[in-house]
Simulated scan of single mutants.
Amino acid sequence: MSAHGPMPRSSWIFPALAVALFAVATGLGLTFTPSAAGLVFAAALLAILFGTVFAAVHHAEVIAERIGEPYGTLLLTLAVTIIEVALIATIMLGDKPVPALARDTVFAVVMIVCNGLAGLCIFIGGLRFKEQDFQVSGANLYLSVLFVMATITLIMPNYTLTAPGPIYSAAQLGFVSVVTLLLYGVFLYTQTIRHRDYFINQASGASDDGSPMSNRMLAVSVALLLVSLLAVVLLAKKFSLVVDIAIASIGAPPAFAGVLVALLILLPESVAAVAAARKNDLQKSINLALGSSLATIGLTVPAVAVAAYTLDKQLVLGLNAQEMVLLVLTFIISMLTFGTGRTNILFGLVHMVVFAVFLFMVFVP
């Protein structure tokens, strides 16, 4: 979907279908079962859910054009994070406890955006333009906050003494949640007010003034964005049933559920990031990719922690040794890739190889 020109029909049809599907499924008690009717319901649910997520991101892009950069990419990131929190909380806190889902999803998001998405954007941009520029100052701010957040939420739980790893005690979890929120809040202040110029690549022709549009279109997009987000939240429970049975049917490991949730919520944002790289605006691609990682940890972990504490559910956060190696490797190559301000296809290929290793190890640990 494009944010330019007339509003595409799919941007309002899918949210309407999502609300209608939820109403019909709830009223008739429809659910997913391993049968022909259940498969039809699952296929319809996935198609409508994906379409609604794309619609939400489209309306966020329309609003983003009015408010300009870097607020635009920030709005996209926050919209996707709301969807992510809804899906994780619904699945993790459902009838069948999945205490490690938040950890698996957060780790999958970091690996997908820092290796898969960033690598793909850099590789495509390198093929079209040989080299692309971006703001080193902004990338360094992203990475410094990301490294700290990822370490204290995904690695540190394995080495605490108050509670046996890989979990935090209630006091530790509360402290870490406050710290991550504080870090993310100060980062947003830096990105949007204090040092906005760090996150805008003027050479790419990006403008922070926003594109003019009618107030009517803006109001419609705001309303449909809210409806789209609400529809995804309402269908999250139905989606969790499909994920559970699908994983059981194919014999996939539990961590695959986190990968599925991450892929669902990141797909529309990934399309926007790749499109920006093709237009020689790698800065926007980096804002979308690294911004997603920060928002995922800075907002998802505290939100899920509050839900887990309120409902007295266990929350597993610590990664295993293999995953920690991949995370540290991602830190190292990210520092090398984003430390010069210029990229080429080899940087992109290196990140994509690490992402391929991550996916392979999910199924063959």
Rank of each mutant, 00 (worst) to 15 (best):
K284R: 14
P157W: 09
T192G: 14
I112C: 07
L346G: 04
P164C: 10
V259F: 07
A56W: 00
F107W: 02
V98M: 11
A43L: 13
V179G: 05
G205K: 02
L294S: 12
I155D: 07
F347H: 15
T73S: 15
V232R: 08
Y71W: 12
M156S: 10
P253E: 09
D281M: 03
L75H: 11
L290R: 01
F355N: 08
S293H: 04
V80S: 15
A150D: 03
G174M: 07
L260M: 12
I88R: 04
I122E: 05
A248K: 06
P8Y: 07
L17G: 15
G291A: 06
V243D: 07
Y189V: 14
L264R: 02
F355P: 04
K279S: 09
L87M: 13
R278W: 04
I245E: 09
L46W: 13
P166H: 10
V306Q: 08
I247L: 14
V98F: 09
A277G: 06
Q135K: 10
Y189P: 07
M92L: 07
A308Y: 00
A308K: 00
V98K: 12
V145A: 15
V233C: 10
A276D: 03
L181S: 14
A277N: 06
A231H: 13
L317I: 03
M1C: 12
